[in-house]
Design a protein around this nucleic acid. Sequence first.
DNA 1: GACTAAACAGACAGGTCTGTATAGAAACTC
DNA 2: GAGTTTCTATACAGACCTGTCTGTTTAGTC
Lengths: 187, 187
Amino acid sequence: MTSSKRDHLVDTALDLFCRHGFHATGIDKILAQSGVAKMTLYKHFKSKDELILATLHRRDEKFRNDLMRDVERKGKTPRERLLAIFDVLGDWFSGRGFTGCTFINASAEYSAPENPIHAAAAEHNRLVSAYILELAKAAGAKDPNALAQGLMLLVEGAIVMAYVAGQKDASEQAKRTAEILLADAGI
Amino acid sequence: MTSSKRDHLVDTALDLFCRHGFHATGIDKILAQSGVAKMTLYKHFKSKDELILATLHRRDEKFRNDLMRDVERKGKTPRERLLAIFDVLGDWFSGRGFTGCTFINASAEYSAPENPIHAAAAEHNRLVSAYILELAKAAGAKDPNALAQGLMLLVEGAIVMAYVAGQKDASEQAKRTAEILLADAGI
DNA sequence: GACTAAACAGACAGGTCTGTATAGAAACTC
DNA sequence: GAGTTTCTATACAGACCTGTCTGTTTAGTC
């Protein structure tokens, strides 16, 4: 399979980027940890930035797939699922390898909005927002857009508080706050 | 004045760190933009990390001073001031030089919680939280701790949505959501 | 077994990084 | 005005960075 090396590179790069950041992770470290030769990397990716984009793409897919799967397992009704989001966040925060949100971190290192890396983070954000909006509509909220945007603020806020301030219980606080918003939305 | 060069270095470094990130900003660029000699920098700061810590310290002081000043000018009662926080955020987001939260960005680049740079970001977070809690108590909230933590989630969430997703109106959405929380807190 | 394509190993170029060393200029003090 | 401190300018060391290049080895196919 021609793409097995590629996949392995993306996996390794994602691990190192998450743990140490993008600028702080050199190509050589990714090669050493993956055991892949340099020329193989540059055959699959034109540059380090392209490798970063590929890792962000994989991270986005895995993150949203895992989120939807866990949310739909933990909650049966749309209302339960909106609240289950914060339980999933709690599991994520208390997991061993929690290093914050890869996309927030990527935006921090590539601040220009027109940078493709920053744009990829914005797109991920948009897709998560769309999922929450979908649930809010299914739950029959009075103003689904307002509810979804409010919940998204709580999600992002909880991630920041858990990562920057080390406040791992931010997800529980966010869940309690979300219940207030759900009540206000009539569900 | 022995500290004028030092102050100038911190100002310049803060500007460059905010615009381009910490790893991406080399000592030489700070020297070129400030017009200060390298040995002068290393006389005032033992290392680049110490310079970073000094810039974060200044940023924290300026940020919270400006926040409190603007909030207390825009709102007269504690309740008004809690809501005014989000108006101040809106001004910040739409300002020309908005590059997200320096402390979230610093945490992203220095992920280890025991790293002094990450710790400085956590401390800033704690101090902002304390200010909001103070206002929540003065406003006579039913459960000031819960209200303050909920508002803090909205603040951090709004910053992320404004910076990562470019959603500059996140502050308005956060304000509308905050009003729901205030009502729930009985104020 | 011969041919082909992929991956490996490692040197290399050219640039950047942090931090140090040295020598001269400017400013301040007595 | 002499002496001291402060700053500048610049070179330097040693490490790291990305990306290229050259061979060699492995693996798969006919």
